[in-house]
């Protein structure tokens, strides 16, 4: 072992040394006078620091009083109150949960709207829009008109007539009345007009 390594170990402590290293360190200590002096000085200083009494020594009952003061401070600590709804909500976690819940509700509502069966009292523009939307959705095989009751069918045609037929003063012989409809919509409309003409009074 060289002097540099010896002094490094002296500073960092001997506790982590292997038995072999410890032996080498002890041998160097005995054989190198300058390192021996170094070790003796270090140990003397270390002993002085270790045994240095505190600058002020508290009175004998100080520790007892301090212990009781700490324990009574802990006893006096107010119990944790049950968290209130608003307190929880305005915590970051609460806000995140609320946002997730709102998102779920929006998704759920849209899903429910799509799947919701037609209600018997559903009429007018909302009914018409929904039927048009559903009828031309890709992959839809069932005709939603089949589920309607007579009142709903009349209401539907009334909306279509209002939407697509011009008023008498706007009537133009050359105008294409159904220019806004795509061929599929047109076919479907004509089909309904033909099949249900006995119930129709408007056209």
């Amino acid at each position: 072992m060289n002097c540099e390594r010896f002094q490094k170990i002296l500073m960092e402590g001997l506790s982590d040394l292997s038995p072999l290293e410890r032996k080498a360190w002890d041998e160097h200590r005995q054989s190198c006078p300058s390192c021996l002096q170094e070790a003796l000085d270090f140990e003397a200083l270390e002993g002085m620091v270790r045994e240095l009494p505190p600058e002020t020594v508290p009175p004998p009952d100080f520790w007892e009083r301090q212990t009781h003061a700490i324990l009574s401070r802990i006893d006096r600590r107010p119990e944790k109150k049950a968290a209130r709804f608003w307190d929880i909500l305005f915590q970051p976690r609460g806000l995140l949960a609320a946002a997730a819940m709102i998102l779920l509700m929006v998704i759920g509502f849209r899903f429910w709207q799509q799947e919701r069966p037609l209600g018997p009292n559903e009429v007018g523009e909302p009914l018409a829009s929904r039927l048009l939307e559903e009828a031309f959705e890709e992959g839809t095989s069932d005709d939603p008109m089949d589920e309607l009751n007579p009142d709903q069918i009349d209401s539907y045609y009334a909306v279509l007539a209002e939407k697509y037929l011009p008023s008498p003063e706007e009537w133009d012989e050359d105008a294409d009345l159904f220019a806004d409809l795509n061929p599929e919509e047109l076919d479907r409309l004509i089909d309904h007009f033909e099949r249900k003409s006995d119930r129709r009074t408007i056209l």
Binding site: P54, E55, T56, P58, F62, W63, Q66, T67, A69, I70, L71, R73
Partner: peptide
């Protein structure tokens, strides 16, 4: 736990604060 470590904690605080009362408060 208090009795085991209170002196270490107190004298650590005292080295920095140099006042018994302050070190006592910090220990508590």
């Amino acid at each position: 736990l208090i009795r085991t470590y209170q002196k270490t904690v107190f004298f650590t605080a005292l080295r920095l604060l140099r006042k018994n009362e302050d070190a006592d408060e910090v220990t508590q």
